[in-house]
Design a protein around this nucleic acid. Structure first.
Lengths: 200, 200
DNA sequence: GTCTATAACATGATAGAC
DNA sequence: GTCTATCATGTTATAGAC
C-alpha cells in the first residue's frame, strides 16, 4: 500500500517504515540497525517493537510494500495502453513504469530490488507470493506481445530484462544527465532491437 | 591472481581467502563473521589476523581477486579471437567469458559482482581502480565493434549488458537445464538483435 | 602460524514505568 | 505510543603463550 506515502495521516508505524526503507536501501538489511531506524524516525529503539514484532517483520513489510508499488504501476501502465497495439509502445511503457517505481516512488521499491536476494530465507519466503504475481504479469504480457516465442524463451528474456532494469538502481543517478524516461527508452530500445543498428 | 586456485602450494592465507570468498557470496559482507571464516578454514578467529590486518582488508583482497579473474578471462578471450572479424562472435565470446568467470572460476568473481555495491565505501574505493580497468576493456571493445555509435551511447549499452550478466549470479543455476554456454548465447543474442525476431 | 583469553563495543530484544 | 534500563549474545580486534 505504500503506507504513509500518499495520505496526510502519517502514523507512527508508517514513519518507522519510511525510515527503515531508506536505510535498508543505503546499508542493506544486516548493515542497518534498529537504533539507526529509531533515530531516523525520531524515537528510541525499544519503541519500534510497539509497531513491529521483530526486525525481520519490519523488513518483510518494507519489501512487500516495494512490490505493491511496482504492481500498481504495472496495472496503471496497462490501463493507459488499452487502445494501443504497438508492441514497442507496450514494452517501453512498462519498462518506464518499472524504472519509475524504482526512482520516483520512494525507497520501498529500490529496497526491494537491491536487497531481496540478500534477505534471510524467511523474509524471502514471506515476500515471494507477491513477487511472483508481479513476475507473472510480465510473463503474461510477453506472451501476448510475442506469440511466436515459447514460454521458456520468454521467461529467459524477462530475466535478462529484469537484470538490466534492476541493476540501474545501483548505478543510475536520476539527478544526472539522463532522465528516467530517457533511460527507459534506452533499455526498451535495447531490449527490442539490440545493438545491430550500430553495426557497420 | 586467484590465489590458491591454481597451484599446489596452498598457503594458509589462500585457504582463508577461499573460505571468505565463498561465505561472502552466500551471506554478504556484514552477514559473514570472522569466526565463520575461521571455522571454514579450520583455524580460530584470532589467527586470521596473522594473514590480514582487518576484515575489510580481507574483503578487499577477495573482491580484487574477483576482477583479476575477469580481466584474465577477458584477455584470453580476446587472444583467441585474433583472427576473427565477426562482431557477433566477439560479443558472444566475451559474454561467455564473463559468465564463465562468475560460474566456473570459483567464488571470487561471484563475490565481486554480488557484493561490490553493498561494500563499505573504503572497500569500494580500494577495488575501483582494477574494476575500472575491466570496464575500460569493454568500452574499448565496443568502440571497435560499433564504430557508428558514440561513446556515451556505448557506455549505456555496456551498463545494460553488465546489469543483465551480473544479475544472473542471483538466479541462474549452472547445474540446471541451461548450460553457461547457452545462457551466454541467449544474452549475447538478446544484446545484439533484441526480441524483434519474435514479433508477429 | 595457530592457539587461548579477553577487551571493548554493538546488536536485537524484553520489561515495566509513564 | 514512547521512554529508560537492561539482558544475553555476538562482533572485531588485540596480547601474549606455544
Amino acid at each position: 500500500m505504500g503506507v504513509g506515502l500518499q495520505t496526510e495521516e502519517i502514523t507512527g508505524r508508517a514513519r518507522v517504515l519510511d525510515a527503515a526503507a531508506e536505510l535498508f536501501v543505503r546499508q542493506g538489511y544486516v548493515g542497518t540497525t534498529l537504533r539507526q531506524i529509531a533515530a531516523a524516525t525520531g524515537i528510541k529503539a525499544g519503541s519500534i517493537y510497539h509497531h513491529f514484532e521483530s526486525k525481520e517483520a519490519l523488513f518483510v513489510a518494507v519489501l512487500n510494500d516495494g512490490i505493491v508499488v511496482m504492481i500498481d504501476a504495472f496495472d496503471e501502465a496497462q490501463s493507459s495502453l488499452a487502445g494501443t497495439d504497438d508492441v514497442a509502445v507496450h514494452v517501453r511503457e512498462h519498462v518506464r513504469s518499472h524504472l519509475s517505481a524504482i526512482f520516483e516512488n520512494g525507497p520501498y521499491t529500490t529496497a526491494h530490488v537491491t536487497s531481496f536476494f540478500s534477505a534471510p530465507a524467511e523474509v524471502r519466503a514471506a515476500v515471494v507470493p507477491k513477487r511472483d504475481s508481479y513476475e507473472q504479469k510480465w510473463n503474461q504480457l510477453f506472451e501476448v506481445l510475442f506469440p511466436a516465442a515459447n514460454t521458456k524463451e520468454l521467461r529467459l528474456r524477462r530475466l535478462i530484462l529484469f537484470g538490466a532494469m534492476n541493476a540501474t538502481a545501483e548505478w543510475f543517478d536520476p539527478a544526472g544527465n539522463l532522465t528516467v524516461d530517457q533511460l527507459a527508452t534506452a533499455i526498451s530500445d535495447q531490449f527490442l532491437q539490440g545493438v545491430t543498428q550500430y553495426e557497420s
